[in-house]
Write a protein that binds this DNA or RNA. Structure first.
Length: 421
RNA sequence: GGAGACGUCGCAUAGUUCGGCCUAGUGCACCACCCUGCUAAGGUGGAGAACCCUUAAUGGGUUCCGUGGGUUCAAAUCCCACCGUCUCCGCCA
């Protein structure tokens, strides 16, 4: 939910953001009209209600013989109140529907346009050079006994995998390395529920246009989360937070489920894009004025992870049209994947400013004692997909893979992963 | 899954019998001030959330007693459904 004050005082800013995203600009005017209609409806209802309340007191205080007559009068008033109340409820619902579909206004500097219109912020590390034909991550995974797609498909269908042996250990190692770094950064670890209620899913913005990306369990009306961001944001829903001691930072560890409904035949090979994977997610609740600094901080943790793992990567400032509706800015860190000759997203960090918090009703107390929405930010710290970049980047001619120094402690000291007999 | 008890503005509670004196009382904690020569005790006052109108500050109104419906002129209070907590029983990886 956007800031109503901004919508009323500076609708042009919202219009500009909508345009940059390629979203409807007219929506802004519909929302403004609905806001006016809603306020009118509320006022008439409240005035009627006030008279009804006053009248009710007269009825209560009246002597018995007059009561009959007063009650008769009150009945017509009650009918009016009921109608006005319904009108106000309807107007409110329409307003919420319209305002709720306006995306978070983008921050200054976010490029307009779609997926290809990102701004490249930096490129770090040397792309690996091979004097042999490099194998892709699935070839390596099979050679090393790390990935079994065939059995994944047998048990669960396409885009499911088994991580086997060293593959399973590799995933846990990456996740644990991320967790240790998160702990060092003051993040509180959380193992989160992966089934959540509709209102939490909606509050985090995942039931909007991309709701077909989400698994739903109709028997229980619960949703499988595609990221622990959902549970992490819902964690403090409807609360007034005390941020005087600094931001609240959490690291959520969870399995993530995605239908990949829109991704057709893309990335069908290997574990780049699968229905189920694990992820360690950072999540921060901060004062609005600290949101942009926190965003840089989250990006910093992500870059440190990739650097420690010896990966070559670039950082992009995602274009407006490629942002989720809750995000006002998003940085992706993309690792170089040699066999694809391309950078592929390993992490993503979004600054949701106060948008998500407003919808989830997460507030703090200002110095004047009023409540105001906090800002929320999220960012990936580790996922299953990292295995792809690690295997491909550190492979050798015989199919073995050198384990980056930083990861060795998490693999019981293993320095080299070798093909199995 | 079955039976029962419970859910009140930070915490703890009163109020639900029998709908209207509830504009939801009280205690603790909290804030300001006063008093007392010390961090104790006491006194006075303040103080919940959301929304609407109004203003320079302000002031006024409406809603909120787990959630959503219903009955009624009027609901914390009566009815229904749902959610949650606890106790017991059953079932189960």
């Amino acid at each position: 939910m956007i800031d109503l004050q901004l919508l009323r005082d500076n609708p042009d800013a919202v219009r500009a953001s909508q345009a940059a995203r390629g979203d409807s600009v007219d929506l802004v005017d519909s929302a403004l009209a609905a806001d006016a209609a809603r306020r009118n409806a509320i006022s008439s209802f409240e005035n009627l209600r006030a008279s009804q309340n006053a009248f009710g007191k007269r009825v209560a205080a009246a002597p018995k013989e007059e009561k009959q007559q007063l009650v008769a009068q009150a009945q017509s008033l009650a009918a009016e109140v009921k109608a006005a109340s319904q009108a106000a409820t309807d107007a409110e619902a329409e307003f919420v529907r319209l305002v709720g579909s306006i995306a978070n206004p983008i921050l200054g500097g976010v490029p307009a346009g779609g997926e290809d219109d990102f701004v490249l912020l930096k490129t770090v590390g040397e792309k690996p050079e091979f004097d042999f034909e490099p194998r892709d991550h699935l070839q390596l995974g099979e050679l090393l006994g790390a990935i079994d797609m065939g059995r994944g498909a047998k048990v669960s269908g396409a885009r499911f995998s088994f991580l086997t042996g060293i593959g399973a250990r590799l995933e846990l190692a990456i996740m644990n390395m991320g967790l240790d770094r998160a702990l060092a950064g003051g993040f509180i670890p959380l193992i989160t529920p992966t089934l959540v209620k509709p209102e939490i899913m909606r509050g985090t913005g995942f039931l909007g246009e991309h709701s077909d990306e989400v698994y739903h369990l109709p028997a229980d009306d619960l949703y499988l989360t595609g990221t622990s961001e959902v549970a992490l944001a819902g964690f403090h829903a409807d609360e007034i937070l005390d941020l005087t001691g600094g931001p609240l930072r959490y690291a959520g560890w969870s399995t993530c489920y995605r239908r990949e409904a829109g991704s057709g035949g893309k990335d069908t090979r290997g574990i780049i894009r699968v229905h189920q994977f694990n992820k360690l997610e950072m999540f921060s609740y901060v004062l609005p004025e600290n949101a942009e600094a926190e965003h840089e901080r989250l990006l910093g943790y992500q870059e440190e992870m990739l650097r420690a793992l010896g990966l070559s990567y670039r950082v992009i400032d995602t274009a407006a049209g490629d942002l989720g509706s809750s995000a006002a800015r998003k940085y992706d860190v993309e690792a170089w994947v040699p066999t694809q000759g391309a950078y592929r997203e390993l992490t993503s960090t979004s600054n949701c400013t106060t948008y998500q918090a407003r919808r989830l009703d997460i507030r703090y107390r200002t110095e004047s004692g009023k409540t105001a929405p906090v800002a929320t930010l999220n960012g990936t710290l580790a996922t299953t997909r990292w295995i792809v970049a690690i295997l491909e980047t550190h492979q050798r001619v015989d199919g073995s893979v050198v384990v980056p120094d930083a990861l060795r402690p998490y693999l019981g000291g293993v320095e080299l992963i070798e093909p199995i007999g």
